[in-house]
Design a binder for these strands. Structure first.
Length: 578
RNA sequence: CGGGACGUGGCCUAGCUUGGUUCAGGGCACCGCGCUGGGGGCGCGGGGAUCGCGAGUUCGAAUCUCGCCGUCCCGACCA
């Protein structure tokens, strides 16, 4: 490829972008252009990277025995109605009508569609099956952001497994897990597998692959001691046990009201009334699928909403509004409590179990009660893990202190169970001739997001520093003096030699100054730069510069191709054995 | 969906508060010529904008008012 004929419109003049995050670099370096919010054109450089990313993931998927397919982006509404997700997906699903007036969904994921395909499976002998595709997903994101990081239109590698039983699913799941670990390793993304919530996918277990990064949107609870890692949506932590003696000391025969004028927060109450946060019961009011529900936590704990959703199975979840709360309880937030409330469902966090001598609101403004015995005074209908694990709490595995880090979710694997098998009526004949329902798994990697995450990890003040495996080009030949015929010819010759040696190479043959070529090569992020110039011509050598380290070594012209080929080979991890 | 900001040649932006000699100035990019030539070089010349859209106020609107659209950022959701 020749730089002079390639459309790489770099925007090199914004000093504020030094060390900028991936979306700015992709834009500046001529990788992407926005069409409108959440939709980007990929220019030649980006498409080259994308195809390499796809190639690596494809190799790893094939190596675990998965087969590539391609499913439509447009789906008839009926399929989604059968699984119940036509309603569940709400505004996030793009919908349209065809000329006949039939409802059509634009695919945001393909569980329903593969399950439809899988109705053709007829015997246990055909299981297990793993099918995957690279396909555009369309999601009407409420807030697209950060360039390729969060778009409304993106490529996803999604795969689906069908197994005879749970043990088989475990195996397919583990195969994907290992394929993902190898894929991210080859892509240069330091992703770590973390426990996660299943969300709207349903099912029993899921693992997210998260790339640690300050720009990430996910909070990951991580134990440096033993390696435990989980999304805060699912993370657990250990608490110091409650002190029974202190509880006993604060216990009363019955809850005793006391005036707390102006007190609205846990902190106010802790400060003025000898009621530390861990002695309070925090009462939140949520509307779960239309049902007003009291959610109880220890005063110093924060609710993790996803845990509430997972624990209740509710679809529509929102905090209640002040008006609704007053109508139901007769008080405003700040003075709420569950003591004596039997008209509303009550769900409480495990940390409140068996506590006594607690302080909580009295459901009368400016009044609280003390001496509350959870078992005696509160009608808790459901106990669940609802609190968000926090930094400094203890690891349930090894007891070490936990930390919370930010990360980018680049992949997610789910054990789906029978949700879609049921909806689509999947069935095969078992060994005994009786029908058996296959069990499903689903597995996704966001391709463009992986590119963005990779840059997030691999960039410096001069631009992108691609790992050789997915760089748009492995090497660039920079002709330092384009109008010097001897130099230009030597550049062409070295360029041809590199190509013949199997190096993915571009020659910068533009008629611009050497400095422009150098800075562009660095901004774009090509791993190896081969400089051909008057200086080297005299001594019969080129200079090979490593983008990552900045190191430059002189290499005789006839050795350049071999030298670069070896450097690239060394830098790239090959595919796993099939 | 709630909160905030912004919308001026391909890109970045000045002008807007205090409407009128600016029917819009600059930088980058682009075209031509010349000088340069190993780290974003210089000079001269040139092309390119009905100031997001629509109403309104006014003798006069990029500038003021209203509406709409769009984009970005902060919160609740996802690969």
């Amino acid at each position: 490829m020749r730089w002079s004929t390639m459309h790489i419109p770099t925007l090199r003049d914004d000093p504020a972008d030094a060390g900028a995050p991936s979306h700015r670099l992709l834009l500046r370096a001529g990788y992407i252009r926005q069409l409108f919010a959440g939709h980007y054109s990929l220019l030649p450089l980006a498409q080259r990277v994308r195809l390499k990313v796809i190639g690596i993931i494809r190799e790893e998927m094939n190596s675990i025995g998965a087969q590539e397919i391609l499913m439509p982006v447009m789906h008839p509404a009926e399929v989604w109605q059968r699984s119940g997700r036509w309603e569940l997906m709400g505004d996030e699903m793009f919908r349209l009508k065809d000329r006949k007036g039939a409802d059509i969904a634009l695919g945001m994921t393909h569980e329903e569609i593969v399950a439809t395909l899988a109705t053709e499976l007829s015997s246990y002998r055909e299981l297990p099956q793993m099918w995957y595709q690279f396909q555009t997903k369309l999601r009407d994101e409420p807030r697209p952001k950060a360039g390729l990081m969060r778009t409304r239109e993106f490529t996803m590698k999604d795969s689906y497994s069908f197994d005879l039983d749970a043990a088989g699913l475990d195996k397919s799941f583990d195969l994907h897990r290992s394929a993902y670990i190898r894929s991210f390793e080859r892509l240069g993304i330091p992703a770590i597998p973390v426990n996660a919530s299943n969300g709207s996918m349903g099912g029993s277990g899921s693992t997210e692959f998260v790339c640690p990064s300050e720009t990430g949107e996910d909070d990951i609870v991580h134990c440096p001691e033993c390696g435990y890692a989980a999304n805060v949506e699912a993370a657990v932590s250990a608490l110091a046990p409650a002190d029974p003696a202190a509880d006993a000391a604060a216990a009363l025969d019955a809850p005793a009201p006391f005036g707390t004028p102006g007190v609205r927060t846990i902190e106010d109450l802790a400060a003025g009334y000898d009621a530390p946060g861990d002695r309070q019961v925090k009462t939140l009011v949520y509307v779960l699928d239309g049902q007003l529900t009291l959610v109880l936590l220890r005063g110093d704990h924060a609710l993790e909403e996803q845990k509430l959703i997972d624990a209740t199975g509710a679809v529509a979840v929102r905090p209640a509004e002040a008006g609704e709360i007053f109508a139901a309880l007769g008080a405003h937030p700040g003075s709420l409590g569950a003591a004596g409330v039997t008209s509303l469902p009550v769900i409480a966090d495990f940390a409140l179990r068996d506590r006594s001598g607690m302080v909580t609101g009295a459901n009368t403004d400016d009044v609280h009660v003390r001496g509350v015995d959870v078992a005696r005074d509160l009608s808790v209908g459901t106990w669940a893990d609802l609190r968000a694990a926090a930094a400094g709490e203890l690891c349930t595995v090894c007891g070490g202190p936990l930390e919370v880090i930010k990360g980018i979710e680049v992949g997610h694997i789910f054990k789906l169970g029978y949700k879609y098998s049921d909806a689509m009526d999947l069935s095969v004949s078992g060994p005994d001739g009786k029908p058996v329902k296959p069990i499903m798994g689903s597995y996704g990697i966001g391709v463009e997001r992986a590119m963005a995450a990779c840059i997030e990890v691999h960039h410096d003040a001069r631009g992108i520093v691609w790992p050789a495996a997915i760089a748009p080009f492995e090497a660039v030949v920079v002709v330092a003096q384009q109008d010097d015929t001897a130099v230009a010819e030597m550049g062409e010759q070295v360029y041809r030699q590199l190509g013949a040696a199997g190096v993915d190479v571009i020659i910068d043959d533009r008629g611009v100054r050497a400095g422009v070529k150098f800075s562009d090569a660095e901004l774009v992020g090509i791993p190896y730069r081969v400089t051909i110039g008057k200086r080297g011509l005299a001594s019969g050598s080129a200079e090979v510069t490593d983008r990552a380290t900045g190191e430059t070594v002189p290499v005789p012209f006839d050795q350049v191709a071999k030298h670069v080929r070896e450097a690239v080979t060394h830098a790239i991890t090959g595919p796993a054995e099939a």
